[in-house]
């Protein structure tokens, strides 16, 4: 089993954002203000020399955290070996302290869903995740991984446990760490009405190594984690509580749509860094 993040990586990495090519020039120009870059591995699957060079250049200047969108670790059909090979190559070139993916499935029966779909919180789903993660680790190698909670568009009935108990069991069975997406947690709490503190109480204390923060918006009666808005004040307050409780190593700001002037992204990175440092001082 791959070593957990806590045993393998620096005490604290800091704050950064999920890299977007539209911001490439500003990213390099402001690298003193960016501790870490998450890269969406799928964006670097193009096997051209230019793409490989771009990834190498980023790795020379930043700590990179490769993040997968479509490994589909929750697929009962198993992993797509071609995707896994590409993903592993990006992780290798990124020289990362850990890689991350989602507690979700994105394909089944030969159909690509196009986004993250929730798993039922059952023992069978845990077994599938464990089996697929084991296969992924055989190809990617002995590097820690962190798995992320998703914003659930639907909730499947028949759960044998709540989500935090499911994540705890996943950590215990696989030795993975957790990437806690605070915006997703916020969205799920609003849409499905559960107590965030009870959720946090049930997570394994030492397993949360990274946070995602992002902005969302209301679409009718549903709160959507659109990644198209500034991080909401309620989410920042939740980030503070999470940092005080779990002391994560890194916070990554996500912005996918309606990209703002880069100064706004830098301001959110700075705010995340301050929260991370204040939490470290208080511990």
């Amino acid at each position: 089993m791959a070593a957990a993040v806590a045993e393998r990586s620096p005490l604290r990495i800091g704050a950064g954002y999920s890299f977007r090519r539209a911001y490439a020039a500003q990213t390099y120009a402001n690298r003193a203000r960016i501790d870490v870059l998450e890269i969406v591995a799928d964006h670097f699957f193009d096997n051209s020399k230019a793409c490989r060079r771009e990834l190498d250049l980023l790795a020379e200047h930043f700590i990179l955290l490769p993040h997968g969108l479509d490994l589909s670790l929750g697929s009962a059909d198993g992993l797509d070996e071609a995707y896994l090979a590409r993903f592993a190559e990006v992780v290798r070139r990124a020289r990362a302290p850990w890689w991350s993916e989602h507690v979700a499935f994105t394909r089944a029966g030969g159909i690509a869903i196009g986004h993250l779909a929730p798993l039922p919180f059952t023992r069978e789903a845990l077994e599938v995740l464990e089996r697929n993660l084991d296969r992924a680790r055989r190809v990617i190698g002995d590097l820690p991984c962190a798995l992320e909670n998703i914003a659930a568009p639907v909730v499947l009935g028949g759960a044998e446990m709540e989500e935090p108990a499911f994540l705890r069991a996943l950590v215990e069975r696989t030795g993975c760490s957790l990437l806690l997406d605070v915006e997703n947690l916020h969205a799920n709490a609003l849409n499905f009405g559960f107590d965030v503190d009870c959720y946090l109480d049930a997570l394994p204390a030492g397993a949360v190594v990274q946070l995602h923060v992002a902005g969302g918006e209301w679409n009718g009666a549903t709160y959507v984690d659109s990644h198209a808005r500034a991080v909401h004040a309620d989410v920042w307050r939740l980030v503070e509580r999470v940092c005080n409780r779990f002391a994560p190593k890194a916070i990554v700001v996500e912005r996918d749509e309606a990209l703002p002037p880069f100064d706004e992204v830098l301001a959110e990175i700075e705010r995340a860094r301050v929260i991370l440092m204040q939490a470290a001082v208080c511990r």
């Binding site: 499935f105 869903i113 779909a117």
Partner: peptide, 16 residues
């Protein structure tokens, strides 16, 4: 595997 069958049905529902 019950989960595999459920996921195939869900994938159809989500995309067709």
């Amino acid at each position: 595997m019950p989960l595999a069958a459920l996921q195939r049905a869900l994938a159809q529902l989500y995309t067709r």
